[in-house]
């Protein structure tokens, strides 16, 4: 009787353990259906990339010269400015293609002063095909009108082709009456292209 009881007890324990394991497996395997809803938003967004700062530093027109010419390609003629290499890199970090316009808040006369100053910019694709109808690709006077200059008819959001460089050239006359730090604001405006 004792033997039978022990066997019965053992059987019950085995069944209980198996049931528990089955329950556990079923619980782990228990699946249900849920709905994850999300909406995809469109984004228009541009940014000046990390390494795009330009700092020409302080300098003066060489003695005896009527003007100095600086550019962010590294050019420095008849001036003592040393930090002339660099450019602004603009990147489309949104999801939408956009047109791109540049405008300056000051003219060369307001920014630099003196006789026949110039304040020019030019643009170039950094990644091939980033910008359709890119212009100006050689230095041209900055635009201070409300709408500015259309530099891209399409500035693409595709990661492999979404960036361009902006360079500046300044002609600083020796007779400018301006001294100290001068202020200009360059605004890049991206307008979403409607698909």
């Amino acid at each position: 009787m004792n033997k039978l009881n022990k066997r019965m007890f053992g059987l019950v324990v085995c069944v209980a353990v198996l049931s528990l394991m089955c329950s556990l497996v079923m619980a782990l395997d228990d699946t249900d259906t849920g709905i994850i809803a999300f909406e995809i938003t469109e984004t228009v967004d541009i940014t000046f990339a990390t390494s795009s700062s330009i700092d020409f530093g302080a300098g003066s027109v060489d003695s005896g010269e009527t003007s100095a010419t600086l550019d962010s390609d590294g050019g420095n003629i008849d001036g003592s400015w040393t930090n002339t290499t660099g450019n602004l890199t603009l990147e489309n970090i949104g999801t939408e293609d956009a047109t791109l316009d540049l405008v300056s808040n000051v003219t060369a006369a307001q920014f630099i002063g003196g006789s026949s100053p110039t304040f020019k910019w030019k643009v170039a694709n950094l990644s091939v095909g980033s910008c359709d109808n890119i212009a100006p690709t050689s230095y041209a006077e900055v635009n201070t009108t409300v709408n500015g200059t259309r530099i891209c008819s399409a500035f693409y959001a595709e990661d492999s082709k979404d960036d361009l460089n902006i360079n500046f050239e300044l002609v600083i006359p020796s007779d400018t009456s301006l001294e100290g730090a001068q202020v200009a604001v360059i605004t890049a405006t991206a307008t979403e292209i409607n698909d």
Partner: peptide
């Protein structure tokens, strides 16, 4: 003629308004 020309982005590695 001491003219300082500095082109700055607001801060390094930031994004423009979107």
């Amino acid at each position: 003629v001491c003219v300082v020309f500095v082109v700055l982005v607001f801060s390094e590695g930031v994004c423009g308004v979107g």
